[in-house]
């Protein structure tokens, strides 16, 4: 528990900033919906005529005239990308920062096994991501109430669940990479999150690139699929969970054996 508390305290400023920014952006998007709602039917037909551009963002299958359709795209951009960047930053720095800031020598010469340190750091990371998502859900609920909408709860819940798992997957994979680094991996983390986002866009453009959806967690957060199917794609999700396990195990295994120079 000591290291969990310490990690949460050390990262609280970054966490607060990211949480507030994501929640604020999402709130703005929801609050402007009533004003945009009247224009949405026109916008929807315009998007449907834009061919592969709309397909890339899943906008060809969503009805912009409905709140869920609008929210699906906005949520995808704000919570998907924002959450992915936050998760990547958390994961990539969680172990490497100790060596980069030369605090590893201090931490690892206390009577706590490396495995416990890794597990507590992972727990702290999960807690941060969980709180971020709960806060965003609470803000979303308040904003939806404020604009007088009453969307179906199940697809909304599935969307938030998918984004939560996406953030965990990116965080765990970055955590695994972090164990191999002894310097700042910020560029690697942010670059990876952006790459995964664009892989999903590419996979939406052509059938030949559909397999990329197995590589990117944005594959199972596709709002058009979730809203239309009423469930998460278990094929994409299973592969994602596999990556999560590989990231966590590889990170833990390597960090417990690496030389701290």
């Amino acid at each position: 528990m000591t290291i969990i508390r310490h990690e949460l305290k050390q990262g609280r400023m970054t966490f607060l900033i990211w949480t507030c920014v994501i929640a604020f952006m999402l709130a703005v998007c929801i609050l402007i919906y009533p004003e945009m709602g009247t224009q949405m039917e026109e916008v929807g037909s315009m998007f449907s005529e834009m061919g592969s551009f709309s397909a890339a963002f899943g906008m060809d299958r969503l009805n912009f005239g409905e709140f869920l359709g609008f929210f699906g795209v906005e949520c995808g951009n704000v919570l998907g990308l924002g959450g992915a960047f936050f998760a990547a930053l958390s994961g990539i720095s969680i172990l490497a920062k100790e060596e980069k800031d030369q605090t590893a020598e201090f931490l690892l010469t206390h009577p706590v096994s490396r495995r416990k340190i890794v597990l507590q750091k992972l727990t702290a990371m999960i807690i941060e991501i969980l709180i971020l998502n709960l806060f965003v859900i609470a803000v979303t609920a308040a904003c939806v109430q404020a604009i007088g909408e009453s969307p179906e709860v199940r697809p909304l819940f599935l969307l938030f669940l998918a984004y939560f798992i996406l953030q965990l997957e990116i965080a765990f994979v970055c955590f695994g990479i972090s164990a191999f680094l002894s310097h700042s991996g910020t560029g690697i983390g942010l670059g990876m999150a952006a790459l995964l986002y664009f892989l999903n866009i590419i996979s939406n453009l052509t059938e030949k690139a559909k397999f990329l959806k197995y590589l990117t967690p944005f594959g199972y957060t596709e709002s058009a699929d979730i809203i239309a199917d009423g469930r998460l794609n278990m094929g994409y999700l299973s592969v994602g969970l596999g990556f999560m396990v590989i990231g966590a195990v590889a990170g833990c295994f390597w960090y417990c054996r690496k030389d701290i120079l």
Partner: peptide, 21 residues
């Protein structure tokens, strides 16, 4: 290792700590 570290006090040559603490 853990049992050893509980009975040892170590002072590294570089006194590096968490900067904002």
């Amino acid at each position: 290792k853990e049992a050893i570290l509980s009975r040892v006090g170590y002072m590294p040559s570089e006194a590096s700590f968490y900067r904002n603490a």
